[in-house]
């Protein structure tokens, strides 16, 4: 087990190092932030001073060496845009995205498992066909389009919900609802498929023959064995929210890590971009690990 985690960590660390090097040098190619941050009539002295202050005068390789040295002391550099440590900016944004992802995925998981299992219990029935159709539509819709249409309907025309921003619980409703749709459609399909297989197995037939009621059959006998593929997809989708959140956060003006990253790239705030990449990679690594542990927990035959 420990060995397994260690191997995983080393592999992830290696790829992370490669990525950080790549992004560090590539991002420097986009240009000098000086012109973006100083007023257009700034004197040459001011420009020189700004470059000197942020270390943009040194050759790239020296800058990189300094960055790595700082990193070793857990110093992720300063955000130019916000004039405070980059890691603080990133963690703040990350906590917003994490709450968004956690709320969405909890709702998605519960809804998809309950509805998918019920649909699988009566394959080809009315309930099954309706849910299959709607989950297909959900899996097909582009989230930015749903977000826009939802804003027009619920915020602009009906005035039920705010258009964007944060502050009250009501601000969370639209982002969560939009992020909910696609993972829900996908996970529902997987739950249904794997529950159909699980419910047609011999031990479920035995339980039925013994007269066990249908609810325990679905949720106790079937579900535990049908869960393995479902967990994989849940993990993929949770990681996908880090992606999907870029779009949804931009539209709803939600101060999460996705919006932060886009803004930082556009404003050449390199330290924040790099810190954000490292934090999100770490989050995905931890989540993949949790998924593997959940496998072992659900299926005693799996050992690491």
């Amino acid at each position: 087990m420990k060995q397994f985690i260690g191997k995983r960590a080393i592999a992830s660390a290696v790829s992370l190092v490669g990525l950080v090097i790549l992004v560090f040098f590539l991002s420097r190619l986009t240009g000098d932030p000086t012109d973006l941050y100083l007023p257009i009539d700034a004197s040459q002295e001011m420009r020189d001073q700004f470059r000197e202050l942020n270390g943009f005068n040194d050759p790239l390789i020296v800058q990189f060496g300094r960055y790595v040295a700082d990193l070793a002391r857990l110093d992720f550099g300063q955000s130019i845009r916000e004039a405070r440590p980059a890691i603080d900016v990133v963690l703040q944004g990350f906590s917003w995205t994490l709450s968004l992802a956690a709320i969405t995925m909890t709702l998605v998981t519960i809804a998809a498992i309950v509805i998918g299992s019920l649909a699988a219990f009566n394959v080809g029935g009315v309930f099954d066909r309706i849910t299959t159709f709607f989950s297909l539509i959900g899996a097909s819709a582009p989230d930015f389009w749903i977000a826009i249409v939802a804003i027009v309907i619920f915020a602009v025309n009906l005035h039920w919900l705010p258009t964007s921003g944060t502050g009250t619980p009501w601000h969370w409703v639209l982002p969560v609802a939009v992020l909910f749709i696609r993972p829900f459609g996908l996970i529902l399909q997987v739950v249904r498929g794997s529950m159909i297989t699980a419910l047609s197995s011999a031990y479920v037939k035995t339980a039925k023959a013994k007269g066990v009621r249908s609810r325990p059959i679905i949720f106790v006998h079937g579900l535990r064995n049908g869960m393995l593929p479902v967990i994989t997809v849940i993990g993929d989708q949770a990681a996908g929210i880090l992606n999907g959140a870029v779009v949804v956060e931009t539209i709803f003006g939600f101060p999460g890590i996705g919006k932060l990253m886009i803004d930082s790239i556009l404003q050449r705030d390199f330290a924040v971009v790099l810190a954000a990449i490292m934090v999100s990679a770490l989050a995905i690594f931890i989540m993949n690990l949790l998924i593997d542990l959940a496998y072992a927990l659900l299926d005693p035959r799996i050992r690491y």
Binding site: S12, S15, L19, V23, L26, S27, L29, T30, A239, L242, N243, G244, V246, V247, G258, M261, I262, I265, L266, V273, A276, I277, S280, A281, I284, F285, N288
Partner: peptide
């Protein structure tokens, strides 16, 4: 697989 692909796409395309 271990990195958010859309974010990477954003960086690469911007550069």
């Amino acid at each position: 697989m271990s990195f958010p692909s859309l974010l990477l796409a954003v960086i690469v395309l911007y550069i």
